[in-house]
Simulated scan of single mutants.
Amino acid sequence: MYEWSYNPNFFYNSMNRMHSYVRFLHASPGTFNIDILMNNKDVSTNLSYKDFTEYFPIYHGRYNIKVFPAGNRTKVLIDTDINIPPGSIFTVSVIGKLEDISLYPILDPRLPIPMGKVCLRFIHLSPDTPLVDVRLSNGAVLFSNIGYKQITNYILLAPATYSFDIYLAGTNKRILYVPNASLRPSKFYSIYFVGLSKQEPPLQVLIPLDGNSYLGF
């Protein structure tokens, strides 16, 4: 296994330079369901905590994003702009506790993937959890010293069903056990680490397929 960094100009090679993809993730622990608008148009209504939208195609450019409590357009939780480069794939995450809720755009970098391997990375989105290490059940360290809002590079693994242990960094204090994560060959996955270590909702991971596994340009 080894880290794999990406060329930030790679996605500009797309033949359709206008075309990008975006999905949203509700990762704000303790926050009610939300509605999301892009340029004042609904893109998701009643999105629950830990849920993703589907990816949808958009043109590149600058977009205004507003987030509201579901069904209540009088209280704006987030009102900010994001830039979507051409030929890119983003997971735009709603993060933080309600009192400091914000948007966090996460690039799903477009990379060629070696056949028969799995690409895996770790994304720390738990606002009250300090640095963590991610290990396999045999003690092998996959990711170390990962802090809030940090995104690792992808590593390459053999396809298999894995169990992951998440520890406070540099210690043997395990804070989460993740069993039976099935990772298929020639795919990209992100481990989204969400929840709270000291309050509800509890720590948890989400391991969806990244859009760079299957989206076409």
Rank of each mutant, 00 (worst) to 15 (best):
N46G: 13
L47T: 08
S88F: 05
G71W: 04
K50W: 00
K41W: 08
Y12V: 04
P29M: 02
N39I: 12
V76W: 08
G87H: 02
T80S: 14
P69I: 03
P8M: 04
N72S: 14
I65D: 05
P57S: 14
G71D: 05
S88L: 03
F11I: 07
Y63Q: 10
I89M: 11
D81W: 08
D42R: 12
S93K: 08
D42F: 15
I82Q: 05
N64H: 14
K66D: 09
N9K: 07
Y49C: 03
A70L: 04
N39Y: 10
K75L: 13
S93A: 15
M38V: 13
R62L: 11
F32A: 08
G61H: 14
S88W: 02
T80H: 06
S88R: 03
I34L: 15
N40C: 07
D42W: 15
D35V: 09
L25Q: 00
N46H: 13
I65Y: 01
G87M: 08
P69C: 07
I65F: 06
F32G: 10
L37D: 12
Y21W: 14
H60F: 14
I65G: 07
H19M: 09
G87T: 05
N9W: 01
R62P: 01
I89A: 03
F90W: 12
T74W: 03
I34H: 05
M38A: 14
I34K: 08
N7T: 13
N40I: 07
V43E: 11
D81Q: 15
